[in-house]
Simulated assay, not measured.
Amino acid sequence: MTRINSFKPLVDKKSEILILGTIPGEKSLEANCYYGNAKNHFWDIIYRTLKPNHDFYELVGAKPKTEKYKLLLDNGIGLWDIIESCERTGSSDSKIKNEVLNDLHSFFQRNMNIKTVLFNGGKAQKYFLKQYSINQFPDVDFQRLNSTSTLNPNNTFEILNEWKRKIKTLANN
């Protein structure tokens, strides 16, 4: 079993929303990019949510990492993972063992502008709750959204609509 590490947080001073996943899968690690597996729906959902004129039928997996990251940061959204490192064979979160979680206390002290954390699926939330309590961070609103993983059996359009509604609501506040 291989020990893997998460990426550094993608945040800046304008980031008020943090999307928190579990830990990058094999394709993401190979691409050195958050949600680097072109089959994951994350970037397609983000583009359809944040770029109203984006061609709905254009898949965005091959777009440059810098463009994707800039789109998030320009909209006050950051990315990170709850797990700092773990042992895992393959990419499935169900195969995670011996995980070490990222230090969210230090993160929120350095990034006091983060007001909302959106868990990308129940596994990210589950790992968060293994070490933290939402009450430890009274100035942050925590919400779970459906996972953007292709392994999620829910309807992709329902997931898209859920993410769009949540992000647009937060952006208008």
Rank of each mutant, 00 (worst) to 15 (best):
K70W: 11
G36P: 06
R144K: 10
K8E: 01
N173I: 13
Y35Q: 00
K126E: 15
R3T: 10
N98E: 12
L29W: 11
G90A: 09
N155G: 01
Q136M: 10
F157K: 08
D55N: 14
S91R: 06
L129S: 15
P9F: 15
L18V: 09
R144G: 04
I45S: 01
I134V: 15
A171D: 13
K51Q: 07
L59D: 05
Q131P: 04
K68D: 14
L71A: 08
F137T: 09
G90M: 05
Q131Y: 11
T49W: 04
K168V: 10
V117K: 00
L145M: 13
K95L: 05
V117P: 00
E67T: 12
G122H: 15
P138D: 01
S94Y: 14
K39V: 09
M112L: 13
Y34H: 11
I19C: 03
Q143M: 15
I45T: 07
T89P: 04
K63P: 08
G61S: 10
R48G: 05
F107V: 00
F137L: 09
Q109N: 11
P64C: 10
Y69Q: 10
T156S: 13
I23C: 02
N161G: 03
P24W: 04
S28Y: 05
N40E: 00
P9Q: 11
F128V: 13
N146G: 03
V140R: 04
F119N: 03
R144A: 09
P9A: 15
K168R: 15
L170R: 00
T22P: 03
Q109A: 12
F142P: 01
S15E: 05
F119D: 07
S94H: 14
C86G: 02
I114G: 06
S15F: 08
L59P: 02
S91C: 08
T116A: 08
K126G: 08
L10M: 06
E84I: 10
A31H: 08
K130P: 02
W80E: 00
E87M: 03
L59S: 15
S133M: 07
S91L: 06
S149V: 05
I46D: 01
K97A: 12
K95Y: 07
N120R: 02
N102T: 07
L104S: 06
Y34M: 05
R110A: 10
Q131R: 13
S15Q: 04
N152C: 03
S94L: 14
T116M: 04
Y132H: 13
N161H: 05
A38L: 15
G78Q: 04
K13G: 13
S6D: 09
K63F: 14
K27R: 12
E84H: 14
K14N: 12
P52F: 05
P138K: 03
L20E: 03
F119C: 03
I96V: 15
N111V: 00
L79E: 02
F108V: 07
K63G: 08
T49A: 10
N98F: 12
K126I: 09
T148R: 01
N172W: 06
K8Y: 01
K51H: 07
K95F: 03
T150E: 13
N135W: 14
T116I: 15
E67F: 13
G90E: 12
I96D: 02
